[in-house]
Write a protein that binds this DNA or RNA. Structure first.
Length: 318
DNA sequence: CAGTAGGAACCGC
DNA sequence: GCGGTTCCTACTG
């Protein structure tokens, strides 16, 4: 796997800013090859207080939007959005920089942001596009935000996960809203009939009530941005890293990777929404989690209790 | 009653 | 074949 150097990143970034590059350029393909795998263990041996941050420039065809995730880790969550004309604000939950709130910033240029926020890789051995936020988030960061583009960075949380690509509102708007509500069944009629024949109970039909359970906000927040190509563990990690889902799922011991599903129905609902599986429930979701046992991705903690799971040690950073 | 565990068949990619 | 999804039975607290 080759990771782009900072210089090439900037080059791509600037080219993108000025040209509004198409979505099938090299940056997009980079993203395809950067998915996390157990075999790829970046510099996660760095201290927990330092958050690794991986650049992942993504070209965007250009569209108007009002909100976009910039990136997130389990210790901070960066949103940047464009509420007005060209003004950009940082917004994040309290766990920024060892518990301190982040600076709210009115930003001027993207170049400044790069210079201010990303001083250097955290260690000499670190991949060149991995940076630590610890020492170089300025009190008043400034950067440029091209209002025609969306810049998204994959990041690693402190547990070593690469976040799945950030959520993107336009993915939703590109689709027909009604199609989102109707949750089309993807079985072909033949196969569906064959399958039902072999089942003792037929597959439950989708009700409009079920479909309408999801709020507009849920649909926006959980719209898949890479079709449905997200792993359940990634999705759980995403929820765990966002304050807004604290009532659904939360860390019990982040160091140990132990988390608790607080609202099993809600988590299943969100997972079903993300995967476009309206009949998803906790029974099925938990079955998928249990499939992770033998794969060594998720396990039950040594002291087992209801709705509590643990990311396995090999997923943890050093 | 909700959650746990795992077998089995199936699906889309 | 992978990564679930769906359905199921048996079991637990």
């Amino acid at each position: 796997m080759t990771l782009p150097q900072i210089d090439s990143f900037k080059k791509e970034k600037f080219a993108f800013d000025t040209l509004s590059a198409s979505s099938n350029d090299s940056t997009s393909s980079d993203r395809e090859t950067m998915s996390w795998s157990p075999n790829y263990e970046p510099e996660m041996s760095q201290p927990q207080t330092e958050q690794a941050f991986k650049f992942e420039p993504i070209a965007d065809p250009g569209y108007s939007q009002t909100s976009v995730d910039f990136g997130s880790t389990s210790d901070y969550f960066l949103n940047f959005y464009n509420p007005g004309q060209g003004s950009v604000e940082f917004n994040s939950p309290p766990l920024w920089r060892n518990g301190q709130n982040p600076p709210m910033a009115s930003c001027s240029t993207w170049e400044n942001m790069c210079e201010n926020m990303y001083a250097a890789p955290p260690s000499a051995s670190a991949p060149p596009n991995l940076y630590s936020l610890e020492q170089h988030v300025p009190e008043h960061a400034s950067f440029n935000y091209s209002q025609h583009s969306v810049h998204q960075h994959s990041v690693y949380n402190s547990y070593g996960f690469e976040q799945s690509p950030p959520l993107r509102n336009h993915q939703f708007s590109e689709q027909n809203d009604l199609s989102m509500l109707s949750f089309p069944i993807i079985y072909s009629p033949e196969k569906k009939a064959k399958r039902q024949k072999s089942r003792k109970t037929p597959k439950k039909a989708i009700s409009s009530e079920e479909a309408s359970q999801f709020t507009e906000q849920d649909r926006l927040a959980l719209t898949p941005n890479h079709k449905n190509s997200i792993h359940l563990w990634q999705f759980l990690a995403e929820l765990l890293n966002q304050q807004k889902y604290l009532k659904c799922i939360k860390w019990m011991d982040r160091e140990q990777g132990i988390f608790k599903i607080e609202d099993s129905q809600e988590v299943a609902k969100l997972w079903g929404l993300r995967k476009n599986r309206p009949n998803m429930n906790y029974d099925k979701l938990s079955r998928s989690i249990r499939q992770y046992y033998k794969k060594g991705i998720i396990q039950k903690p040594q002291v087992s209790s209801r709705l509590v799971y643990q990311f396995s040690a090999k997923f943890k950073s050093g």
